[in-house]
Design a binder for these strands. Structure first.
Lengths: 167, 167
DNA sequence: GGCCATATTGAAACGAAGTCTCAATAGATG
DNA sequence: CATCTATTGAGACTTCGTTTCAATATGGCC
């Protein structure tokens, strides 16, 4: 039986433990410069409690007139960087659309609510056993796998408030 | 332990058991008309022994001057139809790019060679147990999951003939 | 075989998502 | 503060996919 360490992100006002300070320290710790655009992007990212797409962020940053004007390329590049240093995790939706969620470093998998985007993270990877079997049976050198689970969370089962998961 | 029924597609000249006749029968059996464009697309699809993208097919069909001119929309629509009747299976690559492979109806998962595209299909879903656990632990109503495994097949481990999996 | 209702098609415009280029700018380090 | 170099932004560009709509072809029926 799998040993599932589960972490649920479901409280809008206490979305995740990442703070701007931590993220910025992580950035510079990895040798990345702490620029104004990056800070604005980190701000925007931390505001999200649900999976979001790159294009969504671009739109948000374009609308907020306070911060600096941030180009599309910069947003995409920064999201890549943040994913590389495990501040963000990139999740490919069943349709193939990539989205990002905050702060689940290491090998994790996710259970996402298709309605409200609530995310449950679990560290136990049920594929480990399978990988062993596949390795011995096929002699493949297995390098990667994709596993994400989708459904509807308890709250959304009752209220049928129809929302749409970000495209 | 999982019970893995594995099917390997690795012989270029005996790629899969699907024939044009079978596919066409399946199409009409589902109420779809047997048009010339569809026949050309089925031909092209059956020629593939590796995962292919929609855009790849569009290009191939545009290059072959013999058959009818086939519009991009028709290719996309037909691939959708073929996937709906389980002649094709749509697989999302780690990067998010959708590709298609032949003839693995039902609930299956795949192990793909990142180099040559060889595909191993297995019916046993290691996620079943996990789904049970997640259901009772989180009360989510679980509806879908994505699981694909990627690696390098034995042949490609030896010859380092570098190829690229279709984008 | 010929008719007809309608499923299907293709061309092209459109849209979304993401990449690339390159000159200009701005961190960080000494 | 000067310098080296990472970073940026604007926009052109590519790729992938969808939509529209008039024209066409298919399959069932007589």
């Amino acid at each position: 039986m799998y040993h599932c360490d589960m972490t649920t992100h479901e409280h809008p006002h206490q979305p995740h433990t990442l703070t701007k300070a931590i993220v910025e320290k992580t950035l510079s710790g990895h040798g990345y410069r702490l620029t104004a655009p990056r800070q604005a992007i980190v701000d925007a990212v931390l505001r999200h409690t649900r999976p979001f797409s790159a294009e969504q962020l671009v739109a948000e940053l374009a609308e907020s007139p306070d911060g600096p004007k941030i180009g599309r390329a910069t947003v995409y590049r920064t999201l890549e960087v943040l994913a590389a240093i495990d501040v963000l995790t990139r999740i490919v939706q069943p349709g193939g659309h990539p989205t990002y969620i905050c702060g689940t470093p290491g090998h994790r998998h996710h259970l996402l609510c298709e309605n409200c985007g609530k995310t449950v993270t679990f560290t136990a990877c049920p594929v480990d056993d399978l990988v062993h079997r596949l390795t011995t049976d096929t002699n493949f050198e297995i390098r990667d796998h994709v596993l994400e689970v989708f459904g509807v969370c308890p709250t959304c089962q009752h209220h049928d408030n129809v929302q749409t998961v970000p495209a």
